Simulated assay, not measured.
Amino acid sequence: MFKDNNVTLRAITLTLLAMLAFAGNSILCRLALKETEIDPASFTGIRLAAGALTLWLIVRLRSGSSSGAGNWWSALALFAYAAAFSLAYVQLSAATGALLLFGAVQTSMIGYGLVRGERLGPLQWLGVAVAIIGLVVLLLPGLDAPPLGAALWMLAAGVAWAVYSLRGRGAGDPTRVTAGNFIRALPFAALFCLLLWPSRSLDQPGVLYALLSGALASGVGYGLWYAALPLLATSTAATVQLSVPVITAIGGIVLLNEALTLPLLIACASILGGIALVVLNHRKPA
Rank of each mutant, 00 (worst) to 15 (best):
L61P: 05
R62K: 14
R62D: 10
S63D: 13
S63M: 14
S65A: 15
S66Y: 14
S66W: 13
S66F: 14
S67W: 07
N71I: 11
N71F: 15
W72V: 12
W72R: 13
L76Y: 05
A77W: 07
A77L: 11
A77I: 04
A77K: 05
A77F: 12
L78A: 00
A80W: 02
A80H: 01
A80L: 03
A82K: 07
A82I: 08
A84M: 06
A84L: 07
F85S: 09
S86I: 12
S86Y: 14
L87N: 05
L87M: 07
Y89I: 15
Y89W: 14
V90H: 03
V90K: 08
Q91P: 10
Q91A: 12
Q91M: 04
Q91W: 09
Q91N: 09
S93F: 04
A94Y: 13
T96D: 08
T96S: 07
G97K: 01
A98Q: 01
A98D: 00
A98F: 01
L100C: 05
F102Q: 12
F102R: 12
G103F: 13
A104W: 01
A104N: 02
V105Q: 09
V105K: 02
V105I: 08
Q106N: 11
T107E: 06
T107N: 05
S108E: 08
M109I: 13
G111Y: 13
Y112V: 15
L114S: 07
G117F: 13
G117W: 14
E118V: 02
R119G: 05
R119I: 09
L120T: 03
L120A: 12
L120G: 11
G121A: 03
G121K: 09
G121M: 02
G121C: 04
P122E: 06
L123D: 06
L123A: 11
L126F: 07
L126K: 04
L126Q: 03
A129H: 08
A129Y: 06
V130S: 04
A131N: 01
G134P: 00
